[in-house]
Amino acid sequence: MKILSIFTKQKKFEEQLLNGEMEYSSYYKDSFKRLKKNKAALFCLGVILFLVLLALFAPVVSPYDPTYQDYASVLAPPSSKHLLGADEYGRDILSRLIYGTRVSLSIGILAQILASVIGITLGAIAGYFGGAVDTLISRIMEIFAAFPDLLFAMAIMTFMGQGLQNLFIALGLLTWVRTARLIRGSVMQLKEKEYVEASKASGGTSFRIITKHLIPNCLSTVIVLVTLGIPNAIMYEASLSFLGLGIQPPTPSWGNMISSAQSFISFLPVYSIVPGIAIMVTVVAFNIFGDGLRDALDPKLRA
């Protein structure tokens, strides 16, 4: 009786499939469905998109050029002319804030791309080949992880000199270890799977197996890591710029704005307050969206 009911169920299922009443749903489709249910994450995705648009269209949106100095309104309080006031050189704070979005987002994203490239390559090599290669790479990772983060970034910035490009490198070098560790772990598990064996049996080279089979299967992990890594990088950029080791004025960055605003906290508190709020909103948005993405893509990663 029971067996029969299974057969009828199976038949019904096949019929539904044939009639197009039901469709197969892929892994990413499923994840997207799960993500759509998470309202907070969707809202934060909206915030992120807004920030990206703001960064892209900064010249159109901002009322002034961020480096234009209007000496008549030095340290002017918020008014209809300067919505958030003007800084010590009479530059419009709102415009500098909008241009700061460019710096923060691009550094966050590019640093994470660099970190992912290094992390995936070394992690996959260590996990796939094992043995002496793994030991060597793991020791290198240990050393990098043991260096205090901020100090390491500061040291690199001091030694390589300031500038946007060096900031990417410093922040990329800072965060690749986490990616490498997770990829190494996943690759070590995945390489025991049947499809890897099948690929080997049909003459697939190690390079092919790693790039065609192993890395694509780690993709969801990487997506989550990048999303959660961006706010980290933004925070480090702000910290370094605040210490005067990151983005140099007159290029506006939220960190160096807070740094210069520090001398004027009693005249113009709004000058210190708004860049911090911008950092906070961006970081919160990426964190909540990243958490949602993690829950949707890879619930195992939850920790």
Partner: peptide, 12 residues
């Protein structure tokens, strides 16, 4: 609290 830069909290 986690997302606000510590130096900014300090200034506030």
């Amino acid at each position: 609290g986690v997302s606000a830069p510590s130096f900014w909290i300090a200034i506030i």
